[in-house]
Design a protein around this nucleic acid. Structure first.
Length: 202
DNA sequence: ACCCAGGTGGCCC
DNA sequence: GGGCCACATGGG
């Protein structure tokens, strides 16, 4: 058994199924509404503590904003105020609105995007302002159930801790994980979630 | 009063 | 391609 698979098994044994926010992100299958929530969360959680993002979701719920349509209906100004606790709220409200417009304009729904070619969707996402490799891949993996391994700060710390690679570039690490694991979005979802949980557990 | 958190874009060299 | 900085809030 290779070291990647072993690390996954160890983390799984230590923490069990991912909890909290991750129970939604790793849920299978997801409803359209659940995919939308993951999509919103993928933007809001950029460089931000999940506690703050959760605060935003409670505010959104209180304002009866529970879908992508609701966000567009409210408009950028109101959304800006509602997402304040997640930080960087001016840029994030723009990023989020742009992303949602892209979803509706090019595909109509997340369920439709799910049927499209992964490569193509990834490239389209990366063209959007505010969506870099990690956010694009988080969307692909957790909102669209695509087998794409997400590399983030915690993943890099894990790589350093166990000396899994000398190079730490995004693309290199992503290929490394994907090469050493079976191509399975469920495995990728749980593994990455556990890496973050473990990283935050220090 | 610091310091941190699932990043990204825009500069500069 | 790499090094820096702005973006902002809530919690330890």
């Amino acid at each position: 058994m290779n070291v990647f698979k072993k690390l996954y098994k160890d983390l799984k044994r230590k923490y069990g199924p991912p909890k909290g926010q991750w129970s939604l992100w790793c849920k299978r299958p997801k409803t359209e509404r659940e995919r939308e929530k993951v999509l919103i969360g993928a933007i809001l959680t950029q460089r931000t503590n999940w506690k703050n993002v959760d605060l935003v979701f409670r505010k959104l719920k209180g304002a009866k904003v529970v879908s992508l349509r609701d966000i567009l209906r409210l408009g950028p100004r109101k959304i800006r105020d509602l997402i304040k606790p997640s930080g960087f709220y001016k840029t994030k409200s723009r990023y989020l609105t742009n992303l949602i417009r892209f979803v509706f304009k090019d595909y109509g729904s997340l369920t439709e995007i799910k049927k499209a070619d992964i490569k193509e969707v990834r490239e389209q996402l990366l063209k959007l302002k505010g969506i870099g490799p990690e956010t694009a891949d988080s969307i692909l993996l957790y909102a669209l159930d695509k087998p794409v391994f997400v590399i983030d700060e915690y993943t890099k710390r894990l790589v350093r801790k166990y000396d899994l690679a000398k190079e730490l570039s995004y693309n290199f690490l992503q290929k490394l994980f994907e090469k050493n694991l079976r191509k399975d979005f469920r495995l990728y979802q749980d593994f990455h979630a556990l890496i973050v949980i473990d990283g935050q557990n220090r």
